[in-house]
Structures are given as C-alpha cells and as structure tokens.
Amino acid sequence: MTASEPTASGYNFAYLDEQTKRMIRRGLLKAVAIPGYQVPFGGREMPMPYGWGTGGMQLTASVLGQDDVLKVIDQGADDTTNAVSIRAFFERVAGVTTTTATGEADVIQTRHRIPEQPLRQGQILVFQVPIPEPLRFIEPSEEETRLMHALEEYGVMHVKLYEDIARHGHIATTYAYPVKVDGRYVTDPSPIPKFDNPKLHMSEALMLFGAGREKRLYAIPPYTRVESLDFEDHPFEVQEWDAPCALCGARDTFLDEVITDDRGGRMFVCSDTDYCQSRTEEVA
C-alpha cells in the first residue's frame, strides 16, 4: 500500500493535538532518562478500541516527523489487519511515507515482535503493550507494585520462574519474559517471544513502549543493558526449531506454524514477513 489517498483534512498532523504530543514527549524524555521505569501519561481516546495498539499509536504520533518513514508490523507481518489499518491511519492523518522494509523505516510500530534485521542507530521501535506491570500477576495493588519497584523488591519475579521449573522442568514462560533494564528496573518487554529478548540488549535503536488502556509508557534507550531473569542452573534460553524456514531456509529466525490444508499439513515459516521476503528475493 502506498500513500495514494490524500491526507485527511481537519486533523492536526498525526491526529493528536500538539499539547498532547508535548505531554507524551515529556513523558518519553523521563522514560528515557530512567530506563525501564513506567511513566504515567494522560492517554487520549484514539479512533480505535483499546487492545488494538492505542498506546503504541499515541507514542508513534508523538515522535513521528513529516519526513519520517513508518513501518507497522503485527506479529512480524506487515500485511495483517492491525498493521494495515494503523499504517493507513498514519498515511491519512500525517501523510508520511510508509514502508515494509525494516532497513528503510525511521519509526517502526510493532505488536509482539522485533524485526529480525538488526536495527540501527537512529531508528525508533514503538511497542504496543497490553499490561505494562511485570509484577501485576502477583500483586494486584498499583500502590504496592510501585513501592516494590522503588525498593527493588523483585524476589517474586523469581518465584514465578521457580514455579515454572517446578511444574514443567524448565522455564516455560515463552513470551513477555521479564527483563531487568540497566541493572535496575524489572520490565515487561511486551508479549514478544523470548526469542526476541536478546535483541533488546545493547540495541542501537531507541525502544519505546506504550500501554493505552493502562496509560503507561516506558523506554529502553540505545545501548542499554537488558538481562532476562533466570537461575544459575537454569539459564535463559531462546526457542529453537528443528527445521529451517520452509520459504527462505533461514535457521536463525523466529518461525510461525502455518496450517496448509485440512489434512494436518503444516509448515514453519519466518514470522517476520519482510525479512523472509527479502531473503527469498535474494535467492531467486
């Protein structure tokens, strides 16, 4: 899809008014200054229900410039409904150029994946976050979780991992795997597969996280230490597959299972469609 439709009139650039964007940018500056710390912000209503990426969209709208090139992915794919809709939205309300090529994008809004192609300095990755609080599963009180963060009372995070090993023999958490950012804040990396966790560590790109319903944002600045929590005798590990991608033959990417017929046929292909496609084109 290209920016064929004209920019909609009657809206401010990128939909949000400048005051709101300024407020969110201030929040982002604080988030960058305190890596992994959740900053509350006055979330606005977006023309989309919660759960569709309203948090990410508000962050994208606040950092997007007129000359920026935008890419939107959903579970690694550029062509799913959510990705297509958000891309079309910013084309109409901001008139920015969009792309599916990771390398060409200045801002990438993502739901639940980090692109396979290593990000470079100057790029911004905006995550859509459903539940920003990694301690929420064990502590329902917001007041208490804030105090726990303030005092670095993170023992319960390992209780969860312990319980995983006790039940399954290994750490069975496969997505939204908790990390410690810059040796200080325990942070939910959003529901990315733990396969992507190592890409958070010392990333060249700026990573921003927005939770629309919870009205929280946080950040992992470039070149920040990000460790996945684990035990000495059960170290953090990423998923592995027996076979390479059925389309491009990659052995080092995150694969999705695709059902191909009604007779049990299936194959594993890269979840990052742009990466897979570029490899297939190279081969061809």
């Binding site: 009372e153 390992h158 209780v159 312990y162 319980e163 684990d230 000495e232 005798d233 059960h234």
Partner: peptide, 15 residues
C-alpha cells in the same frame, strides 16, 4: 516456591 521466596529476595539464584 513459598519457602524459597525470601531466599530469592535475598538474591539466591540457584534453582
């Protein structure tokens, strides 16, 4: 996990 929690809070990281 109940017994281990205080140890984990003290930094024990060996399952």
């Amino acid at each position: 996990a109940n017994i281990g929690e205080r140890l984990m809070a003290l930094g024990e990281r060996h399952y």
